[in-house]
Computed example of a mutant assay.
Amino acid sequence: MDLDVFAAAHRPSWERLDHLVRRRRRLSGAEVDELVELYQRVSTHLSVVRSSGQDPVLVGWLSGLVARARSAVTGAHEPAWRDVTRFFVRTFPAILYRLRWWWVTASLSALAVSIGVAAWIATNPEVTSAIGPPEQIRAYVENDFANYYVEHPGASFAAQVWTNNAWVAAQALILGVFLCLPTVYVLLLNAVNLGVAGGLMFAHGKGDVFLGLIIPHGLLELTAVFVAAGVGVKLGWTLIAPGARPRLQALAEEARPAIAVALGLVVVLFVSGLIEGLVTGWVHITWLRIAIGVAAEVLFLAYVFVLGRAAHSAGETGDIDARPQTAPVVG
């Protein structure tokens, strides 16, 4: 075969295909049909040129043209921003609403533990004295607790608490797959630590300072941790009691939405980190910083129980739409 003659005969088709590929977002219906036809024709040309082995440069150029044409023909998809919008408007809130009883139960259980520990410490001086030396506790109550929120620049502190809280939430969520126990431990550890801090502050007449500094960021931050813990417990319980589904199938069906929750909580914790880093220690009007924290929590709950309920009622599950329907088996 004379490759030069072949190329000269078909180059107009190649250039036309290249032109259509370059303006693929503005094609008319007839041009789309032409694009598909030329893609098939030039794919055949590529096979002929490649089999001749005479011109690697031409083979490379045609290969690139065919690959771009294939992408134009088969690779159409919605813009990425639509996927992000769908995730935060439908997928994430729908999952939170569907799993609401799991994280609401985790929230109430953890708060009960925190309040119980705080009350025990605040009403029993011997317990307070057993926690640490009097001078150390006095320094914590009088200075260290409040100074924690202002000892670092606001932006860097916000990034620090965001990273720490994201790590705690990730532990609570992911470790739930080990039959719930590690998640319960993480949840109880955080609840006890909160209770100890609150008990010490109330025992020394600093309860107003404690609430004034915890509420602004703590409402949203703790809710995010409780959500992670609730979803983690759900994962573990799915392994324990999968119902009529095979155990691994049930775990996969719950793990996919759990990953979506983890991604969404990154944003929630980012907001709570901003509040902790830029509001808690730096807004000196107590009612104002509490109002900011309450507003953030109310908005989150409305996001779940209004937007999430609507998406859930519309059939949104949070699972992957294009997931395989069957698992591969041998034989």
Rank of each mutant, 00 (worst) to 15 (best):
D4S: 14
F6T: 02
H10I: 07
H10G: 15
R11D: 14
P12F: 06
E15W: 10
H19G: 14
L20D: 13
R24L: 05
R25W: 06
L27E: 12
S28Y: 06
G29V: 08
V42T: 10
T44S: 14
T44Q: 14
T44E: 15
H45P: 12
H45I: 10
S51V: 04
D55M: 13
V59G: 15
V59N: 15
G60C: 14
V66W: 12
A67N: 14
R68V: 07
H77G: 06
P79H: 09
W81P: 10
R82C: 03
F87R: 04
V89F: 04
R90T: 00
T91P: 08
L96Q: 06
L99W: 07
L99P: 00
W101E: 02
V104W: 02
V104H: 01
V104R: 00
T105I: 10
A106N: 05
S107R: 02
L108P: 02
A110P: 02
I115R: 11
V117F: 03
A119C: 01
W120A: 04
A122G: 10
T128V: 11
S129G: 10
E135S: 14
V141T: 08
N143Q: 13
D144E: 11
H152E: 15
A155W: 07
A155G: 08
Q160H: 02
V161L: 05
W162K: 03
W162F: 13
V168P: 08
V168T: 10
F178P: 08
F178E: 03
L179Y: 13
T183M: 01
Y185T: 13
V186E: 09
L189R: 06
N193C: 01
G195Y: 00
V196G: 01
A197G: 05
G198M: 06
G198R: 04
M201I: 04
H204D: 09
G205P: 04
K206A: 08
L213P: 03
I214H: 05
I215G: 01
E221V: 00
V225E: 01
F226A: 11
V227G: 02
V227C: 05
V227D: 04
A244L: 09
R245K: 09
R245L: 09
R247F: 06
R247P: 09
E254R: 03
A255C: 04
P257H: 01
I259T: 06
A260D: 08
V261C: 04
G264P: 09
L269N: 10
S272D: 03
S272L: 00
L278V: 06
V279D: 11
V279S: 07
G281N: 11
H284R: 11
I290H: 06
G293D: 09
V294I: 07
A295D: 08
A295C: 04
A296E: 04
V298L: 12
A302K: 09
A302I: 06
A302W: 02
V304H: 05
G308Y: 03
R309D: 12
A311T: 11
H312R: 11
H312A: 13
S313V: 12
E316R: 12
G318Y: 04
D319Q: 10
I320S: 02
T326Y: 03
V330E: 09
